[in-house]
Amino acid sequence: MVSINIQNLEKHYGKVKALHGLNLEIADGEFIVLVGPSGCGKSTLLRCVAGLNPISGGDILFNGTPVGHLPPQDRDLSMVFQNYALYPHLTVAQNLAFGLKVRKTPAEEIEKRVKWAADILAITPYLDRRPRALSGGQRQRVAMGRAMVKHSNAFLFDEPLSNLDAQLRVQMRKEIRALQQRIGVTSIYVTHDQVEAMTMGDRIVVMKDGRIEQVGSPSELYTAPRTRFVAGFIGSPQMSFVTAQADGHQMTLSDGTVLTSATAATGAVTLGIRPEHFLDHTSEANRLTLDVTNQQVVGTSTSYFANLGGGEIEVIRQGSDTERPATLALGIRPEHIMVFDKDNKRIAA
């Protein structure tokens, strides 16, 4: 197991720059999640670490040793692919043993490790089956097993749960995290699903347009996003944004509503409020009564949509409210109003 140090990493495809000089340090045993929208470069970064994409500049170091020039065969990594990439002509046991046989591991040791992984992943009954005879979840486990048996430097996950149904995804999320903690292997996990990122990662790397927007723990990204992009990307449902004119702590919206924020600013700003931070009317400093334009019931909670200051905001409430109210009486605490400057950077309170 290794620490991974990414230094000024660049990747170009012809004239197109996919990664712009990235720097990232991943500690030994850390579970780091790369998250961002499609095309942000997260998979490219993972593939560069794997050696599947040659790098155009900078370097990657494992325990301080540069590996950027090494082919994937020589990096001693394990990778779980989105479509599992199991060898279709081999049985589950042969799939698990493939990497060990390549490394000329003694047969007894191979058998021991395959049994160990199969027991942990509960795939022992399927060892003689071919991948096509397995369900999506079972294939996912085999892919995990193939990664586990090798005792490699690090695990790389490339959106491994995106082909599974929602229920199985939640279960596998927990299993992967538990396994990683049990084995203690350094892991890089790519996903576009911020819920996956929040629930799995020790730290999350939010990427946009081939650049790292912010690196931090899930709670850090949620409570103290550095940019409007991170604030909007992390958190479900998404943060609502409205434009305003700031004068100290007073924020005037385009419809004349004045909100008080814990953050002081001047001039044109964007305010960000998380749907779960709209509270009951009476007890709060900022009081609003808004017309409800739409409503979505999601079982345990209900989302209400309303217009505020020329933009649409989302408000979330516990419980399933089947009748749509005409208006909502809301309150917002000043510390829950995030303020972003014209460059979309958050202004610290």
Partner: peptide, 15 residues
């Protein structure tokens, strides 16, 4: 043959 099959083999250490 999906590219990932080759890539999985390379990652597994196969030349």
């Amino acid at each position: 043959i999906p590219a990932e099959i080759d890539e999985a083999a390379w990652i597994d250490g196969a030349g």
